[in-house]
Design a protein around this nucleic acid. Structure first.
Length: 422
RNA sequence: GCCGGGAUAGCCAAGUGGUACGGCGGCCGUCUCGAAAACGGCUACGCGCAAGCGUGCAGGGGUUCAAAUCCCUUUCCCGGCGCCA
C-alpha cells in the first residue's frame, strides 16, 4: 500500500512508477474513490455528531422528567439515516481498498527499466569459475550416482517437484541450516522459527493478491495458508504494533520450510531439486527506520555475499530491472551462483527493500517520543540460504573426477569432520 | 474435545444501558545555575489549512431512541478435566 497523501498530492510520481513497471492500473479510479471516501467520512461524521448531541439531550431531559416523545422521533430518524449512510460508506471503502491494495510499490531511481530479466544489470562478480579437466555432471546425475535424491518415489507419493533427500545429503542440508544460523547469530540477528501456516489477514499484508493463486497453498476449511517463505510470517509478526524507535533496527533470521505452488513455471527447471514445491530456507528480515533502509539493504546483500564467499561458491550480484522485480519491492538485488552443470549463473538469493509498503498494509509503526506522531517503518528481506539450491551448487561445484563431492571447509565440523560425500 | 473464568489505550486497571474513572511508565513545559521534587499539558486512529468533529472497550451480528455494559456468535488467553508427539 502506498501513502494516500502521495497519491493525492503527487499523482505524477505514481504515473511514472506504473509506466516504469509497465503495469496497467486504474489510477484515475483510485484517486476518485479516495476522494469519494473522504467526502463520505465527513458526511457520516457530521451525522454522528448530531446523533451524539440528541442522545445527550434525551438523557438530560429524562433526568429531570421532561417529555421526550418528539425528540425520540428525531433520534429514530437520524439513526436510520446514519445506518444507510454507513452501509454506503462501507462499500466505498471496500472498492477503494481493492484498488489501494493492488497498486505496486514505488521504484528506486537506480533500478533499470525493462520488461524482463534481460534488462538486469550485473553489479559485481566473485570467485573463479572451476576448471574441472574432466567431463562434468549436473546435480541430477551426481545425486543419482551417489544415491542422494529419490525423485521417482517422491513423484509417486506427492507428485512432480517433490523429492526425497537421502543419506549424506540430509546431513549436508541440516549442516547448511546450522551453519547459516550460527553465521547470522554472530552478526546479532535474533533467531526466529515462525508458524508455517498463517491466516489470510497476515498473508495479505506481505504479498499482493496475484501471489495467492500463483504461489500460496491454502489449507482446506481453515483460515490458514502455508508460508511461501518465513518472510510472510515475520512481516506479520509485529502487525498492529507501535515499536519504540530506540529498538530499531530489528534484525531477524527466520528459519522455516517454504511451500510454493510454482504455478506458471511449467517446463522450467522440470528435473532435479532446483525448482521444487518445498525447501528449507533461512531468511534475513529487517525492520528499519525509513532513513536507514537503503543502508540496511546494502548491508543485507553483503552479509549474503560474505556467506557464499565462505562456502567458496562463485557468484554474481544482479540489480533487477522493473520487469523482473516483485510488485512489493522498490529495489531488488539477486545473487546468482555459478552452476557448472547448467553452465550458467542461477538465482539463489533475492534481497529487497520494500520501503513502508508492507508496513502500511500490516500497520507496523514506531515512534521515538510518546507525544510524537507514529511513523511507518521500512521492511527489508533477503534470502541467506534456500537449501535445495545451495545443495545443487555444492554438488556441481564440488564434484571430483571420481564422482565424489567435496564439502566446503566451513561445513566440516557440522558434518562430523566429514570432508567428502562418496 | 468438555467445564469454568477472562480480553478496556505502551503497561496496570475502574466502569451492569445515558459524554470511557484513575494509576504507572514516557514526552514537553513551568520552576532551577543544573537536576530532583512539585505543578500543568500531552501520550490510539480518521477527516480537516485550522478551529474542531468523529471513531475506538478482542472480531462479527442483534436488541434499543441510546450498548464497554444486555443477547447470539467467532477468535485468542488463563485454570481444571480428557486425549496426545
Amino acid at each position: 500500500m502506498l501513502d494516500p497523501k502521495l497519491i493525492k498530492e503527487s499523482p505524477q510520481i505514481i504515473q511514472d512508477m506504473l509506466k516504469a513497471r509497465s503495469v496497467e492500473f486504474d489510477l484515475a479510479g483510485l484517486i476518485e474513490s479516495d476522494q469519494k471516501r473522504r467526502e463520505f467520512i465527513t458526511r457520516t461524521d457530521e451525522l454522528r455528531k448530531k446523533k451524539n448531541q440528541v442522545a445527550l439531550e434525551i438523557s438530560q431531559k429524562k433526568k429531570i422528567g421532561e417529555d421526550i416523545s418528539s425528540i425520540l422521533e428525531e433520534m429514530k430518524n437520524t439513526s436510520s439515516k446514519l445506518s444507510e449512510l454507513e452501509l454506503e460508506q462501507e462499500n466505498i471503502e471496500k472498492s477503494y481498498l481493492k484498488l489501494a491494495l493492488t497498486i505496486p510499490n514505488l521504484v528506486h531511481k537506480s533500478v533499470p527499466i525493462g520488461v524482463d530479466e534481460n534488462s538486469n544489470i550485473e553489479i559485481r562478480k566473485w570467485g573463479d569459475l572451476p576448471n574441472f579437466g574432466f567431463k562434468i555432471n549436473d546435480h541430477i546425475d551426481i545425486s543419482k550416482n551417489l544415491g542422494l535424491v529419490d525423485l521417482e518415489r517422491a513423484a509417486k507419493v506427492a507428485g512432480s517437484r517433490f523429492y526425497y533427500l537421502k543419506n549424506d545429503l540430509v546431513k549436508l542440508n541440516q549442516s547448511l541450516i546450522h551453519y547459516g544460523l550460527d553465521f547470522l547469530a554472530k552478526k546479532e540477528y535474533s533467531l526466529i522459527q515462525p508458524p508455517y501456516m498463517i491466516n489470510r489477514e497476515s498473508m495479505e499484508g506481505a504479498i499482493i493478491a496475484d501471489d495467492f493463486k500463483e504461489v500460496i497453498y491454502k489449507v482446506e476449511e481453515e483460515d490458514l495458508y502455508m508460508i511461501g517463505t518465513s518472510e510472510h510470517a515475520m512481516a506479520a509478526m509485529h502487525s498492529k504494533e507501535i515499536i519504540e524507535g530506540k529498538d530499531l533496527p530489528l534484525r531477524y533470521a527466520g528459519v522455516s520450510p517454504c511451500f510454493r505452488k510454482e504455478a506458471g513455471a511449467h517446463g522450467r527447471d522440470q528435473k532435479g531439486i532446483f525448482r521444487v514445491h518445498q525447501f528449507d530456507k533461512i531468511e534475513q528480515f529487517v525492520f528499519s527506520r525509513p532513513e536507514d533502509s537503503w543502508n540496511e539493504h546494502e548491508k543485507m546483500i553483503s552479509v549474503a555475499e560474505e556467506f557464499y564467499q565462505s562456502l567458496g561458491i562463485p557468484y554474481r550480484v544482479m540489480l533487477l530491472s522493473t520487469g523482473d522485480m516483485g510488485k512489493v519491492s522498490a529495489k531488488t538485488y539477486d545473487i546468482e551462483a555459478w552452476m557448472p552443470g547448467q553452465n550458467a549463473y542461477r538465482e539463489i538469493v533475492s534481497c529487497s527493500n520494500c520501503l513502508d509498503y508492507q508496513a502500511r498494509r500490516l500497520k507496523i509503526r514506531f515512534r521515538d517520543k510518546t507525544n510524537e506522531d507514529t511513523q511507518y517503518m521500512h521492511t527489508l528481506n533477503s534470502t541467506l540460504i534456500a537449501t535445495t539450491r545451495i545443495l545443487v551448487a555444492l554438488m556441481e561445484n564440488g564434484q571430483t573426477k571420481d564422482g565424489h563431492i567435496k564439502i566446503p571447509n566451513v561445513l566440516h565440523s557440522y558434518m562430523g569432520n566429514q570432508k567428502e560425500i562418496y
